[in-house]
Design a protein around this nucleic acid. Structure first.
Length: 695
RNA sequence: GGGCACUUAGCUCAGCUGGUAGAGCGUCGCAUUUACACUGCGAAUGUCGGGGGUUCGAUCCCCUCAGUGCCCACCA
């Protein structure tokens, strides 16, 4: 054995050994209780990032339960990640001087498919590099045919059950990417925007969005606003940049008396709030901005201008005409932007598929309230409640090609829609016409990944669903509680009648060493593979859970990685000392020496602490206990104390160390296997040896 | 506007159901070439954000103030 531990010679070797001996499959413990974790499928469009390395805690749980004798299944997979992937792919095209418009739908889809396949295998090897003990024979991809079929079936079931409707509603639309988004995919930026006080006949109102005025179909005031009472219900004459016009004055509770002048223009086509006001008052939805972000013919001479351009031009013209009373240049507002490209989101009216969310959310709320699904750390429970209580209908249509195309066809003759389980209908069931056309849109990627726990298990091996569902734990980043976890609970309950998982375990975000969020644009992204190569996968895994209360964000710490790399070296040298410096005349029985009894007692305490910590998802407690015990109790004190009576102590030394390795194995799988194999042991692998119990 | 966290040694952070504080890194001193220098032994440093309350006793519970971070809603 070398003086210094070299993980590069060890880690790959053991992963291969485990995989070749099929130790990852739950069948290794055929009679054990099922214990299942479904891997949050990484997006198959890029390398793993550090957040993925946090999924080490899933491996910790799986290895722990496997050693305890459970039929532990960790099911791997990857996500096609619809819009996200298309954006990445388009950027690549752009670098080659091409664009998505150069290809037809099918070609583009095929190209992205190949791109994703390529990434997928790279990513899978990175998961292996981290030591993740996943059952690769059950690996799934969100675009596997059988998965797609299940997604179709769910949509059909919801459609038949009246939970799906198609409606012309205001959606969040990115004019650059050419697609709509759910509310969750929109981010807000604080901006300073000029607030124009403009004259509408006898009234003055404040607005930022001058360019939408051509779509105004009313002016609204609060019903209790004494200042303007006389105008309610009347039509007023106004002067506009396109000449004189008439507009009616309505009253609505949604108006804030204290904002601006208390008068608001109502533009149902370009504001979600105004759209709702419009519905209450039967206002016309007059669209003046098109999906390319330019004004249309209703804007008269401003037609063809982009929104910002038009706003400036209109402001100038209105100033000339004396229609602007004043401008508040210091007005602070929040502007909705595309979370990918920062383009201002246009609220636009569009026909989309929506899911009626109320009943789904109610059930999903209940299972958590009743404790059938538990969330760890538990403070996220109230966040979950809050979201579930305020959730709105879910727009699941996306105007992109990369995804699962919605199985809905529209009759060109009678305009009726028909939804199927994926098969193309021959004729319109309503009017028998054969001229029907499939909706070009695809599902929001979260609609398919929201079905992941049951879709995977229903399509892996016969009997898997019955045996492994509901799963034990859903472990994922706290940032996708709403995007994903909540949707899985809703869809799981809906489709299977049962919760998809019992415990939700949320880890925090790994930040850069300065505590800032990692992002490609900031250039502070750290590749976990680099860290694994530099410090060892064991050290990386350990560093991510050691010394941080689980669920809290943490800054990546190189000193901590070094500490853990040093710890692996300490383990190595303890092993070396026990194995290579073993006295010839060692006894074989554990002695009754007081020191030996004392260390065995401390070992028992350690076993109890670590086991309890793991059962409560207190990973940092477990690692802290192990680190302290092995290094400072066992190595520094006990080993030093035995140097005078080494032969007698050897069996205790070996026993305590071997047991420690077993306790440490879920956290540091590679080095513990390497050393365990070198010590006297029974069985094929530390992976499948029994979890230690106290005496 | 609503919610959730956080504020503890120079730095990064632990501290579970209340008994006047710990780790890693760093600093200082010492040791030895030892299984391990990716080492060992020892030391210093904290009115646990401010104020108030409950309690025999609070870093831990309650109230309040201040600061930081995150999430949700959303501004016409």
């Amino acid at each position: 054995m070398d003086k210094t531990y070299d993980q590069t010679r060890v880690e790959e070797k053991w992963y291969k050994f485990w995989e070749e001996n099929n130790l990852f499959a739950p069948e290794i413990n055929p009679d054990g209780n099922p214990y299942t974790i479904i891997l949050p499928p990484p997006n198959a469009n890029a390398d793993l990032h550090l957040g993925h390395a946090m999924m080490s805690v899933e491996d910790i749980l799986i290895r722990y339960r496997r050693m305890k004798g459970d039929a532990a299944l960790w099911l791997p997979g990857s996500d096609h990640a619809g819009f996200e992937t298309q954006v990445v792919f388009e950027r690549n095209l752009q670098n080659e001087g091409k664009s998505r418009f150069d290809f037809d739908r099918e070609t583009l889809y095929k190209m992205i498919f190949e791109f994703v396949q390529n990434n997928k295998s790279k990513m899978e090897n990175q998961l292996r590099r981290l030591g993740f003990s996943m059952d690769w024979s059950r690996e799934k991809f969100t675009l596997d045919e059988d998965i797609i079929n299940i997604v179709y079936q769910t949509f059909k079931k919801m459609s038949d059950g009246g939970l799906i409707y198609r409606a012309n509603r205001i959606v969040n639309y990115c004019t650059k990417h050419g697609t709509s988004f759910s509310d969750l995919e929109v981010v807000y930026e604080d901006r300073k925007s000029p607030l124009y006080y403009i004259k509408y006949g006898p009234l003055t109102l404040a607005t930022v969005r001058l360019e939408t005025k051509f779509g105004d179909t009313a002016v609204a005031i609060h019903p209790n606003d004494e200042r303007y009472k006389e105008y309610i219900g009347k039509e007023i004459d106004i002067e506009t940049v396109l000449g004189p016009a008439k507009i009616k004055v309505i009253s609505d509770e949604a108006v804030d008396k204290d904002f601006g002048t208390g008068v608001v223009k109502v533009t149902p086509a370009h504001s979600a709030t105004d759209f709702e006001i419009g519905q209450r008052h039967n206002l016309e939805v007059k669209q003046v901005i098109n999906f390319d972000g330019k004004l249309n013919e209703k804007a008269g001479k401003f037609a063809g201008m982009k929104v910002k351009e038009a706003r400036a031009a209109i402001a100038e013209e209105m100033q000339k005409k004396g229609l602007i009373e004043k401008v508040d240049e210091n007005y602070q507002n929040r502007v909705a932007v595309c979370y990918k490209c920062g383009t201002e989101i246009e609220p636009l009216p569009m026909e989309q598929w929506f899911i009626k969310i109320d009943s789904l959310a109610k059930n999903a709320l209940e299972v958590v309230e009743k404790g059938e699904v538990k969330i760890f750390p538990k403070n996220y429970t109230s966040t979950y409640y809050q979201w579930m209580k305020n959730i709105k209908d879910w727009n699941i249509s996306r105007q992109i090609v990369w995804g699962i195309q919605i199985p809905a066809w529209k009759c060109k003759d009678c305009n009726e829609w028909v939804v199927t389980k994926g098969e193309e209908p021959n004729e319109c069931p309503n009017c028998k016409s054969s001229t029907i056309e499939r909706d070009p849109d695809v599902f929001d990627t979260w609609f398919s990944s929201g079905q992941w726990p049951y879709a995977t298990l229903m399509t892996t091996k016969p009997g898997d669903f019955e045996k492994f569902y509901p799963t034990a734990v859903m472990e994922t980043g706290r940032d996708i509680l709403f995007f994903w976890v909540a949707r899985m609970v809703m869809l799981g309950l809906y489709k299977t009648g049962s919760i998809p998982f019992k415990d939700v375990v949320l880890h925090g975000t790994v930040l850069d060493p300065l505590g800032k969020k990692m992002s490609k644009s900031k250039g502070n992204v750290v590749n976990p593979m680099d860290l694994a190569n530099q410090y060892g996968a064991d050290a990386l895994r350990m560093a991510l859970v050691y010394g941080n209360a689980f669920g809290h964000d943490q800054a990546l710490s190189h000193p901590k990685l070094q500490t853990m790399r040093n710890f692996t070296n300490k383990l190595w040298n303890i092993g070396r000392f026990l194995i290579e410096f073993k006295p010839e005349d060692s006894t074989t029985e554990i002695s009754n020496h007081e020191d030996d009894k004392a260390i065995l007692k401390k070992l028992d305490e350690t076993i109890n602490k670590v086991t309890a910590a793991l059962d409560q998802y207190r990973f940092h407690d477990a690692t802290d206990t192990l680190y302290e015990f092995i290094w400072h109790e066992f190595a520094d004190k006990y080993i030093e104390s035995t140097k005078e009576r080494r032969s007698e102590a050897q069996p205790t030394l070996e026993y305590v160390f071997k047991t420690s390795l077993e306790l440490l194995h879920p956290f540091m799988p590679f080095i513990t296997e390497e050393l365990w194999q070198r010590l006297p042991h029974e069985g094929k692998s530390i992976m499948i040896t029994s979890w230690p119990t106290s005496k």
